Simulated assay, not measured.
Amino acid sequence: MAKRTAVKKAGRTSGGSSVNGINPRQPCPCGSGKRYKACHGSAGGPADVLVARPFEGLAAECELIALREFVPSATVRLPLREGVGDRELTLASVLPMAAAALARTDGVTFVGLQVQTRSGDVSRDLARAVRWALRAEQGEALPVVGPDDGAEPGRLQDLIDPDATLEPELHTDFAWWVPGDTEPTGEVALALERANAAIMPTERVSGPGVHAAYWVDAGDKAHLRWVRPEPEERLLAAMARLAVRGELDLGEGSRYAGSFRAHGLLVPVWDLDREQHAREWSEPAGALGQRLTKTLDELDDQPLSEAERRARDGLRGRQVTLR
């Protein structure tokens, strides 16, 4: 729901320096909304360790990033490890008032992803919200995860099945915030009205080899936003090779627009013809995914040419802003 501003070249400042590989002028990966140099990168900033890739090691990493960063309204069952808890939890993109967790009066319990973080590790904050949700009483809400006092150590990786994938259900509005027989009132009704007014139509683009890819109607144009699992430099090299070959788009009615970084991974973005339905891009996305996979396999034996290195540098500088 919130606007996400893409960053400039990683590891580079006006003085050519970086801190822990993070550009001090980019938004802090902790999600505070401040620049890194004014948050975890400052001398007086939060003292806990900043984890730039909080969902690493999970098969659902890319989907978690998409749900946290740009999917407006979606829910999916949280695949808890055996023995963690008996209650079924639903992971949600965003909850009323951006709550961290919510136990509805009908017994449905949610954990929200698009929340304000209180530490340098999104995974740790989410784990604490999950533990709260497992013991919450019906009708209770957790507005925000409080300061970490060390009483509940652990991360999301300790609580959910690391091999489980996610197939979120996308919604056209936020009616699922309240039980079907309940009329929203007060702050919830106002938040629901505002959220529904701001939502951008979004659909999953799926198919063989296509995961964590989303079609978004931004009004004047449509986009494909695709969270990729590969290390950034390796992915950029493969994309550069495809760009030199003229194979980086998704066919007629599309063009590569740029990329943004989110929680340690790169999210390439393509501009698309709005007249074509989201499902019409499934096959082209699958074909592009196959080209990327093949090109990634080539990199070890075939170093980039001079033209491909120039293309890579150009791609690295093409950062986009989500609106």
Rank of each mutant, 00 (worst) to 15 (best):
P303Y: 05
A2V: 12
E203C: 07
E275G: 13
R234S: 11
A311S: 12
G139C: 09
T105F: 07
V210N: 01
T185N: 10
V145F: 10
D121H: 15
R204S: 13
E193I: 04
L113N: 06
V267W: 01
L67D: 02
A307K: 11
V267T: 12
T117N: 15
G180M: 07
G317Y: 06
T172L: 11
V122H: 14
E280V: 08
Q26W: 09
E306V: 14
E69F: 08
A136E: 06
P184N: 03
G120A: 09
E167N: 12
A307V: 13
K34V: 02
D297K: 14
E233C: 08
D125I: 03
T295W: 05
S254I: 01
L89F: 02
S32K: 06
A238K: 03
R12A: 12
A129I: 04
G21Q: 04
K8A: 14
T172S: 11
W132K: 08
L299G: 08
A59C: 03
Q116F: 12
V178A: 08
A195Q: 06
R261W: 12
A175M: 01
Q319L: 11
W177F: 05
M200E: 14
E61A: 07
P208V: 00
T109K: 05
V144I: 14
V216Q: 11
L142G: 12
A237Q: 09
E308C: 00
V216T: 11
G207A: 04
F174S: 03
R25H: 15
P179D: 06
G154P: 05
P153K: 00
F260W: 12
R234K: 10
R77Y: 11
T117H: 14
P54A: 03
A103W: 13
H40N: 10
S282A: 14
S259C: 01
L292Q: 00
V115A: 11
R4L: 15
G286N: 05
P96T: 03
L142R: 08
L159G: 04
D220Y: 11
T109W: 04
